[in-house]
Design a protein around this nucleic acid. Structure first.
Lengths: 225, 225
DNA sequence: CGGCATCCTCTTTGATACTG
DNA sequence: CAGTATCAAAGAGGATGCCG
């Protein structure tokens, strides 16, 4: 079993001893996005992982006290995986990686998987409501397998899986085009040439702010209509 | 060559595609601590790394634009490795890992390597001067191969390799004992039983604060004499 | 089905030795 | 000093099998 350690008396190395193995931090990502996951939910949220690896990593995470198994009551009748407090405390690590990794998002390779729940992390971490006094708004995002709603209400921005009752704006298309307009890396007109389809008013996109994305790229005035 | 990717359109996964390989983040740590390293300096700061791996990782880091090679002028006559701006921007990632990893420091396994320069990161990231109006103070730390000085001056805490002219306190012994008293995880009396030797007044340790170390452990009153 | 365990192949790593 | 070369061991990836 992988008891491979750097053997350095350094907190960074110690942290990497525990979460530095391949796939481990992505498993934590999935459990942060939806604590109380079934094994199959994890497999779905981690496209490409081998089943034996997921199984082994979960065991290691449990041994290290980052993950807790819960035997779900009869209606579900299966095991649910939760993060412990120590596991949730990895969120700043994931957030820092996210902020550093956004620089690679504008140039997708085209063969990448996408899952709707992955939207939640960048939205909550990077987006702000620039007009907190405006009335609540909802953007429905249709990409990946399930629709997602971004709800903007009094300065708070949240996401949830599912459809919106009366969205102000619907964005449909590939994830790169949608992420591009949400995070100001693409103008709507450019995103349309990448296959973005919209319903409703793109005005609501003007409310979105990304306070500390480095070099807020080429978003002069991205809104029309 | 390792062009292994998670193939997920997610900024965290993209970041890990670049810096998720074994040793990579520790190489970045070394270059953050001392940009302008020679190959041998890196080998020394990364005990346990295989030479071929260091070589390959440096190539990958250069390809990804995190590291820049500099041909040093005649007096040195060798290659120096520097972080680029993109590489330095990984500091928040390392800082988050450090904060998460400190929980494993109180229970060292005993077979760990230690390097003096590793002190700089936790000191600057975790320690504050609780008495910024007190006169400057210096703590000399003798562990690892080279002595290090922690300088406290008007609320600023810095470290540098080398000896202090007139240290207020000298700490000598194993890294766990020294880190233990610096970060409030050990009382001085307990650290002495672990082999800590001191010269000067341990009063200066009372100035040190660790604002957001979770559960500031068992430091009631660690100072005597 | 959900939750793995096994088997097999391929890649990555770690340790050591060697070279310009 | 700054790497390459070599090679055995460990880990990752993929397919399939098993069991409640």
């Amino acid at each position: 079993m992988g008891v491979r350690s750097y053997r350095q008396y350094c907190a960074v190395a110690k942290a990497l001893d525990v979460v530095g193995d391949r796939w481990t931090l992505l498993i934590v990502r999935e459990l942060l996005l939806q604590s109380g996951c079934r094994y199959t939910d994890l497999q779905h949220g981690l496209p490409g992982i081998a089943s034996n690896l997921l199984s082994e990593r979960l065991k290691q995470l449990e041994e290290h006290g980052l993950v807790r198994r819960e035997a779900a009551p009869p209606p579900v009748a299966t095991t649910l995986y939760h993060l412990t407090e120590a596991g949730r405390e990895l969120e700043p690590v994931l957030a820092a990686l996210l902020r550093w990794g956004v620089r690679f998002m504008p140039t997708p390779t085209g063969d990448e998987a996408f899952r709707s729940q992955w939207l939640a992390f960048p939205v909550s971490e990077l987006l702000c409501d620039g007009e907190p006094d405006d009335p609540p708004a909802a953007i429905e995002v249709r990409t990946g397998e399930q629709p997602t709603v971004i709800e903007i209400d009094g300065g708070e921005i949240t996401t949830r899986l599912g459809a919106a009752a009366t969205p102000d704006l619907v964005l449909e298309g590939d994830a790169p085009a949608i992420l591009g307009v949400l995070f100001g890396m693409l103008e709507v007109s450019d995103a349309r040439t990448l296959g973005l389809r919209t319903e409703g008013s793109t005005q609501v996109l003007r409310r979105l702010r990304y306070p500390d994305l480095p070099t807020p790229p080429h978003r002069a005035e991205q809104v029309e209509e």
